[in-house]
Design a protein around this nucleic acid. Sequence first.
DNA 1: GGCCAATCGACAACGATTGTTGATTAGCAA
DNA 2: TTGCTAATCAACAATCGTTGTCGATTGGCC
Lengths: 147, 147
Amino acid sequence: MKSPAELTELFRDRGLKVTPQRQCIFRTLHGNEVHPTAESVYAAASAEMPTISLKTVYQTLNDLASMGEIQQLDLGTGSTRFDPNVEGHHHLVCVQCGKVRDLYVDARVRVPADQLGGFTVGTTEVVIRGLCGDCSSTPMQGEPHHG
Amino acid sequence: MKSPAELTELFRDRGLKVTPQRQCIFRTLHGNEVHPTAESVYAAASAEMPTISLKTVYQTLNDLASMGEIQQLDLGTGSTRFDPNVEGHHHLVCVQCGKVRDLYVDARVRVPADQLGGFTVGTTEVVIRGLCGDCSSTPMQGEPHHG
DNA sequence: GGCCAATCGACAACGATTGTTGATTAGCAA
DNA sequence: TTGCTAATCAACAATCGTTGTCGATTGGCC
């Protein structure tokens, strides 16, 4: 994703104000590779800026998403995750602990025309579910996140 | 998915009772290819059995899912969908109207070992988002379901 | 400096899903 | 057929994630 400085400019260009709260969120997201939920962005931002509100976090994340600067992911882990990485890539999801990792593979799936039936292909998402390194080594316990 | 008769037997084997409500849900799901939500299963079942409760529908769907007889899908369309088709297959999702179609393609994604990093691959899901035939022909309007 | 967007707190509301209660129904083994 | 007990019912309340509302305040930016 773009750097905080670039996002600052982008927001200005769009007539959006660059408030300390928004800058704080920019910093929190920049280089973030753990696919945070809104709650965890809020937690991280709160550490820096205790008065920031969850509402503002949602607001700013939605703004960034609708500008295409971050990507929303629904991976069946309960809540929406936000991915600062908007390059074409896919995801590894641990069914045990819910961790998400980026996956760079060529996933051009060839769809036979007879299966399309008028469908216009937009994006292709590949989600590989399994056990992450940590969870592979520990015995399975309890119910994993469904999906 | 298995026929209502087979599911009946399966439930008996597991010590679960085969109530009229459950049979009604079995029938509703059998051959269903529209990936219904719990609500729409409830609507369909209610037509046949007006006194059935939404609670019971959820209960039975969860039972079936945990027995592996149906599959839960989180496709970012707001609510969980239930797919009676448990054969290996993938999905086409219309970002406009939310319709879901089954997709049979060979999607064995080759993941380079260095990207796995200890991850144990379980299932691979491919979701292709785009516009279905109906929505391709009509102009885009309003916000699509996010995802 | 001043306009006005953005934020605040403190809630209420939402939709999807699950839990609770106590009463009733009915599957199925004996 | 009887009886135990699981399943269901209605009617709620509660949960979780997310969004909306309010009036008051802050502070970015022309």
